[in-house]
Design a protein around this nucleic acid. Structure first.
Length: 171
DNA sequence: GTAACGATCCTC
DNA sequence: AGGATCGTTACA
């Protein structure tokens, strides 16, 4: 069953690991509906987190991160890859979870490409959207924590935070 | 205006 | 190891 608003209003360090093993439901324009198990996430936590895009403050791009949790933050990186993030926490607390991998599609660029994500998903509401939302799984999963990828510029302190979460095995 | 730079991926 | 490729950002 669909995950509701309250799930996304919590701190990103609670939501990001909780998303491991949950299913992204995507209804494609063709009418086909597919499910993807989330296998890897990363947490980006507020303006103080120098790896988080919101460390630059409010801009046209980061604006949606200041919305309350439950909407999507989508952006293009390296001129060719869309990144899919779920905004979490309460209003004016810019936090987001990067969907790094879903089962069978490793890597944030590949996962977003498989899901057919583009700029039109910027601000997409996961609580009410018909084409993209999250469902609870029946099973529980274990995960391991690791440093985040591709953020060397943020300095040793933030670079070393173990805020990447990777699925291990079913409990 | 203009320039620099990515929360990456693919092919050498 | 290096190239692709362009929106966002910062600075003049």
């Amino acid at each position: 069953m669909r995950i509701g608003r309250d799930f996304f209003l919590r701190d990103v360090l609670d939501v990001a690991p909780d998303l491991i093993g949950k299913k992204i439901i995507r209804l494609f324009p063709s009418g086909e509906q597919k499910e993807y198990v989330i296998t890897e996430t990363e947490a980006y936590r507020g303006e103080e987190d120098l790896a988080c895009h919101a460390c630059k403050g409010r801009t046209a791009r980061t604006e949606v991160m200041y919305h309350e949790g439950g909407v999507c933050y989508v952006y293009l990186i390296y001129g060719m890859h869309w990144m899919l993030n779920f905004v979490v926490s309460i209003n004016d607390h810019p936090q987001a979870v990067l969907i790094r991998s879903v089962k069978g599609f490793e890597g944030p660029g590949r996962a977003a490409r498989e899901l057919g994500i583009d700029k039109s998903f910027y601000g997409e509401n996961l609580v009410s959207s018909k084409r993209l939302f999250v469902e609870d799984g029946n099973e529980k999963y274990e995960y391991t924590s690791h440093p985040r990828i591709g953020i060397d510029y943020s300095g040793e302190y933030w670079k070393n935070k173990p805020w990447r979460f990777v699925i291990t095995n079913k409990i």
